[in-house]
Design a protein around this nucleic acid. Structure first.
Lengths: 93, 93
DNA sequence: TAACTATTTAGGGTTTTATCTAATTACCTG
DNA sequence: CAGGTAATTAGATAAAACCCTAAATAGTTA
């Protein structure tokens, strides 16, 4: 889990994308219909999510399918828990 | 837990402040010695952390003591777990 | 009250972020 | 191959973030 994860989670549109992906993989176009921004802007957000390894992509014919990388999300939650749950004096990755 | 928490966590200086506070409360001045930025900039970060309710302050004489609000941190971790751990189709606050 | 210390606020400059339109790439199909 | 659809990249712009210096505020102490 890298530094970029926190930046990626800071934007509400990106969190909404992640939330949507939770209920199943989705093409870029489908996601585009859910938000009031242009495809190019979505693409910008996808790149940030990919950089944080929060999503994965796979081309399927004419479409590109996005899916959630739940592993990294769980890591984030775990790290936060370790950092702030109780003082074990450790917790940085 | 509000929207601002994610923004607050997005900055490395603020995460370092939180991490430091984990080992105990601290005055603004003490925290200032730990980072290569001016007091005014620290104050800016403190305001963001306070807005996110991640820290609490208490004036003690001439100093202002900062302490961690671990409750909110745990909430964040929990929300992330709920959102991305497994698909229970719920998890928004 | 005057001088001193700790911290915040105000105002400004630079960098980064989020969005847009237009152009491009990648694939599919007739 | 030519035309069409899906998605990304390029370039521009407005807003937000972060940092600084200087000034203001709040409390302490002689």
């Amino acid at each position: 889990m890298n530094q970029r994860v926190f930046k990626a989670l800071a934007d509400p549109t990106r969190r909404a994308i992640l939330k949507r992906l939770r209920s199943g993989s989705c093409t870029a176009g489908e996601l585009g219909t859910l938000f009031p921004i242009r495809g190019a802007s979505l693409s910008y957000h996808f790149n940030i999510l990919k950089g944080a390894e929060l999503v994965r992509t796979e081309r399927r014919g004419m479409h590109i399918v996005y899916s959630l990388n739940t592993t990294v999300m769980e890591e984030v939650a775990t790290v936060l828990m370790e950092m702030f749950g109780q003082s074990t004096d450790e917790g940085e990755s």
